[in-house]
Amino acid sequence: MTPPWLDETQQRAWRAWLTAAELLPRELDAQLQRDAGLTHAAYIVLAMLSEAPGRSRRMSDLARRANQSQSRLSHTVARLEDRGWVRRERSTEDGRGNLAVLTDAGWDVVRSVAPGHVAAVRAALFDPLTEQQTQALCEVLETVVQGLDPDASRRVAHGSDVAG
């Protein structure tokens, strides 16, 4: 038995999602490159560190929060270290894990770049929407996330943050 095809509305929604998922990161990456010479992936690493207690996270936790493989994160952190924005150190808790630590210079970068990034997120995603559409988008995405991760074991909690 052949599974049913998407109906016309589902097809339009799916294709709109695919296009938005392609264009939005590209738009945010361009803004960060223009304003700070940063990739979006590098900015997310800085932002995740800026939100952490002591501005540090275990590399494994940071990889998960930044949605990067351990290998990719290692390269990203190395580039941020070269700029003096992050340093690595051994965990004092167990001596086994490695931490990425946001330096004062890195914190200054996050604070200077965040307002432009938030403005870019707002312009690209929220400005075209009415308040009701924004509420509906929030509810729809939360419903999709709940379906993908019903026990919340796969997701990373995101509170209010400087990342935008």
Results as ranks from 00 to 15, higher is better:
1 M>Q: 11
3 P>M: 01
6 L>H: 06
6 L>V: 07
6 L>F: 10
10 Q>P: 02
10 Q>E: 15
18 L>K: 14
20 A>N: 07
23 L>M: 15
24 L>G: 02
25 P>V: 13
25 P>S: 11
29 D>Y: 07
32 L>N: 14
33 Q>G: 13
35 D>R: 06
36 A>D: 08
38 L>A: 00
48 M>E: 15
52 A>S: 09
52 A>Y: 03
52 A>N: 04
53 P>K: 09
53 P>I: 01
55 R>W: 09
56 S>W: 04
57 R>E: 00
61 D>C: 06
61 D>Q: 13
61 D>G: 11
62 L>Q: 00
63 A>K: 05
73 L>D: 06
75 H>Y: 12
75 H>Q: 13
77 V>H: 11
78 A>K: 11
81 E>H: 14
81 E>N: 15
82 D>M: 13
85 W>E: 11
85 W>K: 05
87 R>F: 02
88 R>L: 10
89 E>Y: 00
93 E>Y: 09
94 D>T: 08
95 G>I: 12
96 R>L: 15
98 N>L: 12
99 L>M: 13
102 L>H: 13
103 T>F: 04
104 D>G: 15
112 S>L: 02
115 P>S: 08
116 G>V: 09
117 H>T: 13
117 H>F: 14
118 V>G: 10
120 A>E: 10
120 A>W: 09
123 A>T: 10
123 A>E: 14
128 P>Y: 04
130 T>P: 08
133 Q>R: 07
136 A>R: 12
137 L>M: 13
146 Q>C: 00
147 G>P: 00
148 L>I: 03
153 S>C: 04
154 R>Y: 03
158 H>I: 11
158 H>A: 06
160 S>V: 13
161 D>F: 07
162 V>K: 07
164 G>P: 14
